[in-house]
Design a protein around this nucleic acid. Sequence first.
DNA 1: TACATTACTACCCATTCATGTAGTTACATT
DNA 2: AATGTAACTACATGAATGGGTAGTAATGTA
Lengths: 220, 220
Amino acid sequence: MEEPTLIRVIIVEDNPYIREGWTTILDADKEIVVKSVFRSCEDALESKDVAWCDILLLDIQLPGMLGTDGVEKFLEINPALSIIMISVLEDSEHVFKALRSGAIGYFVKKVSPEELVKAVKVAYGGGSPMSPIIARKVIDSMQKLPKAKKEYTLSDREQEILTLLGDGKSYSAIADQIYLSVDGVSYHIRNIYRKLQVKSKAEAVAKGITNGLIKIDRGE
Amino acid sequence: MEEPTLIRVIIVEDNPYIREGWTTILDADKEIVVKSVFRSCEDALESKDVAWCDILLLDIQLPGMLGTDGVEKFLEINPALSIIMISVLEDSEHVFKALRSGAIGYFVKKVSPEELVKAVKVAYGGGSPMSPIIARKVIDSMQKLPKAKKEYTLSDREQEILTLLGDGKSYSAIADQIYLSVDGVSYHIRNIYRKLQVKSKAEAVAKGITNGLIKIDRGE
DNA sequence: TACATTACTACCCATTCATGTAGTTACATT
DNA sequence: AATGTAACTACATGAATGGGTAGTAATGTA
């Protein structure tokens, strides 16, 4: 019987040499045990081991379902699974697709045995194993999006009202909610329009969201 | 005269012990030279060294301007500067503020000498040095945002019109632009409202943007 | 062929919006 | 004490909006 502290790993990789190489490397570590090995997402998804294991090493270029597409399916079965992509592909497109789908780490196949073992342990410990180059791609993408925002300066009251406009509220609904006359609301909205250089609710909301002026609740 | 291949580092940190410790550690490496050391962003920003160096190690909790606020100022002076935050603070808020402002790496102060040296070299090599735990926070935030989008299926015509609504166009302006009667536009907008479960332009635009239905041009 | 759906046109109407003008009150600056 | 400004209230008005109803041509489906 194995110790309960062993890190249980599944490998999905079509190349038999790499597959066996990884298995050997990981099994050699006394904290890690490779539970199952598959050559496609389809095979792995049929297995019951997915629900029991901790870490999944997943290739992207596989016969049948691509690894990036498999990520979500594996997580549906076992949301606690930590998926590390290990692929020859290193371009931003694949990296982001994988990470946005729910993978928590990404390595290139030329990974060294030490790195592989470390990656599994890091993932098990709640971290994201990835090369600094991959990390940089992620950081760069974070920095790009919120870039083009002009600095509009709205008062607290104006932001509050703009947010309510984003919820589709009418002047009178806003007036009720913030205890103000309809004309008071109108007063602020005029000022918002002037500052944002717009002339309708829809335009104001659009600029408000794209410039981070409105705190969005994706809750509903 | 120094070799041109030396990695030039600036340190901004108010604690003199840490400051000197880092300097000693980094200077001991033969590829790295610490060019200047400051105890506040203000001091560093006055210096001309910022424009010449490669790496900036920046604390967050400083007297005067916070490191997270300083990031943008340093990058204005030298956009090629790679800024690594090294702070006692590890919460998501500070991590994201720093990284979104333009920092490319983040470490906690208990960083080991080896890690510090490695971080500087990784940053110089175009990577993002950060602990796996920090990386995980970043990945988690990536996965959260585009998550809650329900799949609303709008026709091409509806998307087209919704995008125009986002520009603040009126029914008649849209009608003119896409060669349709005002009532035709009204027809589509009603359907958009039904599908998105909203009842005003502002609300439709808000949902359109947050759910990726509107292609935003931040150009203007 | 009968029936349903889609993409409109067309008309109506109460409500809401955008905007102009004209006060009032409170507070800070000079 | 005078001036200015921010945050409102109040009134007015034409234009735009949202929603209901009805009809048509084109397309697809049973």
